[in-house]
């Protein structure tokens, strides 16, 4: 892993930008570098921009890099990112980060765009034996739901906090965990989402007997 001051940025032309819902986008560009599933990239549009980190959402064998992002209220960068069009150049760092997928029977828990690293892991062949809890407020924010359902079958557990829908748990991922009779205390739990979601989920897991050493978290900042 390279340190911040050594990150080499290189321009990549955007190949596609897909508007997923009112404030979410999937941005893609062709890659010429390798990475590990679960890693992040720093992105800039102009040289003077402060780099912003995003998880890679594509697999290690995909020809392109996918970046899932929200336009956040008050953000100065994400609206500019959403305004890019195919052909525009994006400054992209070398891959970084140690929130890496394993071949073990782990449990993945994500909320919102925190699903991105797990999609990378799933598309990189690391979905065997995994359980995924995916939380979102509305159906259109259950990103890549069909891909996960196809890959994981019944081990894919979508949760919708603000909508009731047949076959989907009504509530947050934390509500889902609370109503379980048993939580697997042997497996490693990977969490990705907002700090609030990570802290609440980690609290529930540790209260229910999961050693904190078996809880790995990636937070947005």
């Amino acid at each position: 892993m390279q340190i911040q001051s050594e990150l080499n940025f290189k321009p990549y032309p955007i190949s596609n930008i897909q508007h997923l819902n009112s404030n979410s986008y999937l941005l893609s560009f062709q890659r010429d570098f390798d990475f590990h599933a679960g890693q992040i990239l720093a992105l800039k549009i102009a040289d003077a921009d402060t780099p912003r980190y995003y998880s890679i959402a594509s697999g290690i064998n995909d020809p392109q890099i996918d970046i899932l992002f929200n336009v956040k209220p008050g953000s100065t960068f994400s609206p500019r990112l959403a305004g890019l069009v195919p052909g525009d150049l994006l400054q992209v760092s070398s891959p970084a980060g140690m929130f890496l997928g394993t071949a073990g029977p782990d449990i993945w828990i994500a909320a919102g765009t925190g699903i991105a690293p797990f999609r990378s892991m799933m598309r990189s062949g690391l979905s065997n034996g995994k359980i995924l809890l995916q939380g979102a407020s509305a159906p259109e924010s259950l990103y890549f739901a069909e891909e996960f359902r196809a890959a994981l079958g019944e081990a894919y557990v979508p949760c919708l906090s603000r909508h009731s829908q047949p076959g989907i748990f009504h509530g947050r991922v934390t509500d889902y965990l609370r109503q379980l009779d048993q939580i697997d205390t042997e497996k490693t739990h990977y969490l990705c989402g907002s700090a609030e979601m990570v802290v609440d989920t980690r609290d529930i897991l540790t209260e229910r007997g999961v050693p904190f050493g078996k809880v790995l978290a990636e937070v947005y900042f």
């Binding site: 992040i40 980190y53 980060g97 809880v215 790995l216 978290a217 937070v219």
Partner: peptide, 8 residues
Amino acid sequence: KLMPVQHV
């Protein structure tokens, strides 16, 4: 495990 920032 104590500090998620260590991943980044």
